[in-house]
Design a binder for these strands. Structure first.
Lengths: 184, 184
DNA sequence: CAAGAGTTATCTAACGATAGGTAGATTATT
DNA sequence: AATAATCTACCTATCGTTAGATAACTCTTG
């Protein structure tokens, strides 16, 4: 009886959602188990330890996020359009999912995370930086160092905007911040 | 025998430090107790519940933070100087204390926090917004609505820059982001 | 086809650690 | 004597994790 999604995927789904609300301590094997209809011990069959599960959701999150953006050097998409798409990805997470960015969450508590999880979190930021740098250099910035600064700035600003908008419970605050980015 | 700092203050110090590493779940009565040299039950004498302690550190953090900035309408300080001072406050937390902004941390996990704590976290952002708006309006001729957008943008960018720099373990990333702010 | 072996997935049941919190005795200070 | 501060001792809940039994499914083989 093969269901539409595997148990491992269901576990990842539940863990990711919980982590995007409460961070690394926001998900537990028991709560996940209840969510997907098995016992806590069975979750360990799919993911040996919490570190592994934490690293797995961060890795999947990163891959899905970048996949949803498309290639930064796609000739069919203008750099400005790609940047708008990038901003829209954060907005969707905030407004539709009503969830924090997983790696923004993990990033805040980075010094409190197991190595495996911290590493995956770093990778999210590095790959986002690289994606943005490619787009920015296509858009006109010539020096690589300047492109990196601009990429860091966009990345940081959007992560911060999510926190701000969620704290004030005001999606308009996100848009206000995003608006100051779009002009560049 | 009255020491230099009261026990309540020592408790706040310990709790704040732990929370700025691990968030709301990053501090516990037992760990705090060990830190200040009393038993866990005694911590409850000073702060009845965890909510109260969490709210107290957020409140004190906000007050100290704004105090360190000085008045936004101080005639003796130019708006650009005040903005530099604002950026420097974040930088100090990152580089010297090597700690995350407490309310940036709490903001990330806002939907997971008790009401009392969430409220204090909101107040941090509101009061920072107001401080920045005052400075920004002094600096230019901007409309109030535009000043709010600019204030949100600075606030979000610096919170995000802290997360970014801490995750990549690279203070230069913070400076790169801050540099894009200073030009405004 | 039928039986058994192997593999995959889940279960029960518990362990030790840690959490927030409470009651009531005890000590220290005023 | 009264108040302020801390203590011991415990409670209940949850955590990650583990060992070992038990199903459930797949594959091979007589």
């Amino acid at each position: 009886m093969s269901e539409r999604t595997s148990k491992a995927e269901q576990i990842l789904d539940a863990a990711e959602k919980m982590a995007r609300i409460g961070g690394y301590h926001g998900f537990s094997f028991r709560e996940i188990a209840k969510d997907v209809g098995i016992k806590a011990a069975s979750v360990h069959y799919h993911f040996p330890g919490k570190q592994d599960l934490g690293a797995a959701i961060a890795k999947r999150y990163t891959e899905r996020f970048l996949e949803s953006l498309g290639a930064p050097d796609d000739p069919g998409a203008a750099p400005t359009e790609l940047l708008q798409r990038y901003i829209a990805a954060y907005r969707r997470s905030l407004v539709e999912d009503k969830l924090m960015c997983l790696c923004g969450m993990f990033g805040a508590e980075i010094t409190h995370l197991p190595d495996k999880v911290a590493r995956e979190t770093q990778i999210f930021f590095e790959r986002n930086r690289d994606w943005l740098m490619t787009v920015i250099m296509r858009a006109g910035k010539k020096k690589k160092a300047d492109a990196e600064k601009a990429a860091f700035s966009i990345l940081a600003t959007l992560e911060g905007a999510m926190i701000l908008a969620r704290t004030l419970d005001d999606p308009a605050a996100f848009d206000a911040v995003a608006q100051t980015l779009a002009l560049e």
